[in-house]
Design a protein around this nucleic acid. Structure first.
Lengths: 237, 237
DNA sequence: AAGTGGTCTAGACCACATT
DNA sequence: ATGTGGTCTAGACCACTTC
């Protein structure tokens, strides 16, 4: 593990455990250099990670301070930081899947465009109901090119597709682009999720990239309104 | 402007103008060093900005590549990158405000907790209907401590509060924490937004921080479902 | 004036991916 | 074997904030 990541981990744990409290000034960069026996650039890189996570604030000419957050907010931030998958939207609970469809199809025009592949290329067409703590909370439609994610089996689809990609395929997921929308549930969605017709649902549209730069996933999920929540941090510069 | 920012701007423009196209390999870091007459660390920092914006992907031992994005996606990304304010959710259009309430109140317990101030401290209580292209699209309730944002006038509330803070007050907004939820519109909300009772609305709950680390804003906005969309990029590491 | 974090360098060495 | 990006250093200088 790089030194800067180790330092970021140590300080993150100290903030999460309350060793540094809200609004408290942290030791100076110069002091951290001595404590960890590293150069200034390395300390700065570690602190910048915590800034981007929303935990601390740095002020030139003044110092570095823990952000004005409650312990609950800090815990929430750290949970939503960990993962990228759709199942990660329901952090604390166990997520199962009822597989409604798992086929390989020729990609229709709109899907091909989202995945940036030729129309008619073969893609997995995966349709799942996501069940959290025994309750159906989301419907998820996923498309993945078969040549980017080879060898996907029904067992993987029933569990975590992301785990298959990272562990079995030894590929790494690099990033994801997300769009959040809101609309009324269709008849079908209402039925699957135990809602009334016209009840609200949250829509998450996602395209996922491997660290090879390849587009590996286009997914579209519909979430029951009363258990849906997404959190994130925006930072300037 | 720092060199790394200048370099990031130049390359961002080249990607946005199509000078570098999807999946194309960029020049090597070493080559950028010569082109811009800077050191390797400076080039790396510039490229890392574009990675975090979701425009490019770097692969150790291989090279740096433009992400597999359509021109439309690139334009969208760049729009949502610019601002942090609630009005920035409606990027391309003109946003006006109908001010329903603008008072200074003693903060009730729940608001005081969100702003991390003493219960009973004075806060602006601002209630606005946000009107985009002549149509009411969102209701926004904002609380700000008066001693953090002194001198706020009705004119500022009718326009952009963020502009008042940045230009007139010469403070800088550093970051914001956001939660997105979905629920049914209340009677009042439906009336203000021209919806049926029970229609879906998107909820954005936001706490804003100045670069001093001070919590300056707690806001809560309710958005008409058919014109609501939020986009963001998640990156690993 | 003193002290903070921010930028930048020139070069060393490392981890990883291709050929 | 070669070449890529990743990490790290020691130190210089700059921009900003407070006292």
């Amino acid at each position: 593990m790089p030194k800067y990541m180790h330092i970021a981990n140590v300080l993150r744990n100290q903030i999460m455990s309350g060793e540094y409290v809200a609004n408290q000034q942290l030791p100076l960069e110069k002091e951290f250099c001595e404590v960890f026996s590293v150069s200034k650039m390395t300390v700065k890189k570690a602190l910048d990670i915590l800034v981007s996570e929303g935990l601390i604030i740095k002020r030139r000419g003044y110092g570095t301070f823990v952000k004005d957050l409650t312990q609950v907010e800090i815990q929430r931030l750290m949970m939503s930081r960990q993962f990228i998958g759709t199942s990660a939207l329901y952090t604390k609970s166990e997520v199962r899947s009822k597989v409604i469809n798992f086929t390989v199809d020729a990609a229709p025009a709109d899907i091909a465009e989202h995945l940036n592949i030729e129309e008619g290329s073969f893609v997995y067409n995966i349709y799942r109901v996501r069940i959290v703590d025994g309750e159906p909370l989301a419907i998820e439609q996923t498309y993945m090119p078969i040549d980017v994610i080879p060898g996907l089996k029904i067992e993987n689809v029933q569990g975590s597709i992301y785990e298959y990609i990272e562990v079995k395929l030894n590929s790494a997921i690099q990033s994801a682009h997300r769009k959040i929308r809101v609309r009324k549930a269709t008849d079908f969605e209402a039925n699957e999720l135990g809602l009334e017709l016209g009840d609200p649902v949250g829509i998450v549209e996602q395209t996922g990239y491997l660290n090879t730069g390849e587009l590996f996933e286009y997914s579209f999920s519909i979430h029951k309104y009363d258990s849906f929540q997404i959190e994130f941090v925006l930072t300037r510069e």
